[in-house]
């Protein structure tokens, strides 16, 4: 498989001035287009064996025995596909997030909201043979962050996805339907042409578990193959 050239217009620019940290960290020169070689079309492969039984359960994977994280019980699920619409099976999806109060469990994080002793904020799952994944967590809280003004991050979950080639590697963030902070967030709004909407997960009523947890659906699209005349159309 050789990769279709990346459509940079769908991604935030390297320097998005309203996101202060990008001003000194975003490269000023355009990336140089290269052909996808075996270095880009191959990548690490992880077996389902790397997963522990609670890796996809952020409500319990850091909790004391018999305890659970505090917060709104939430199921996140979706499909990983490529630009050609094909499932990306058996690929590793890593997630991390703040707790229900908007506090990360990180040494450099100092927000007023308290840590939850039963919440780590880290999990991972693999997609199945149809590219589907699912994990359970508590809905993260919004939080203020230093960006030069009164800036608040909308509730979000960070996603890291591998795909089958190193050139497909992607990190992104999932937002929640109906959150008014998405429109005010310099990071979300750094995506051109209202593209932040593509990262807003809708409430998935059908998957909501009565008397238990609400579900949100977040589909992820990785870069896909360059079409060839020999490629069958499904």
């Amino acid at each position: 498989m050789t990769l279709r050239p990346r459509d940079m217009s769908g991604h935030p620019p390297a320097i998005a001035p309203a996101y202060r940290s990008s001003r000194l960290r975003g490269p000023t020169q355009a990336p140089i287009a290269i052909p996808a070689t075996p270095t880009e079309t191959t990548g690490p492969v992880f077996g389902h064996g790397v997963l522990g039984p609670l890796d996809g359960d952020l409500i319990r994977n850091f909790a004391a025995p018999g305890q659970m994280a505090i917060g709104q019980r939430t199921i996140v699920h979706g499909r990983v596909t490529d630009e050609a619409g094909r499932a990306v099976p058996n690929t590793l999806v890593e997630v991390w997030q703040a707790n229900a109060g908007g506090r990360y469990r990180h040494a450099k994080e100092g927000y007023l909201a308290p840590l939850d002793p039963n919440f780590g904020g880290c999990g991972r799952v693999m997609t199945d043979d149809q590219g589907r994944y699912r994990f359970e967590t508590v809905k993260p809280g919004a939080y203020p962050w230093p960006n030069g003004g009164n800036d608040w991050r909308p509730a979000h979950i960070h996603f890291s996805v591998f795909g089958s080639g190193f050139g497909q590697r992607l990190i992104t963030q999932m937002y929640f339907e109906g959150d008014p902070l998405v429109a005010r967030c310099p990071i979300a709004q750094s995506i051109p042409a209202g593209g932040a909407e593509r990262l807003v997960a809708p409430l998935d009523w059908e998957e909501t578990v009565p008397m238990d947890a609400r579900a949100y659906r977040f589909d992820i699209i990785l870069r896909g193959p360059l079409a060839t005349p020999f490629e069958a159309t499904p």
Partner: peptide
């Protein structure tokens, strides 16, 4: 079927947690 790659977002300051 053609669809667009999901937009990227920064890994943020706490990427090590994940």
């Amino acid at each position: 079927m053609t669809q667009r790659e999901s937009p990227s977002q920064t890994a943020g300051p706490y990427v090590h947690i994940g």
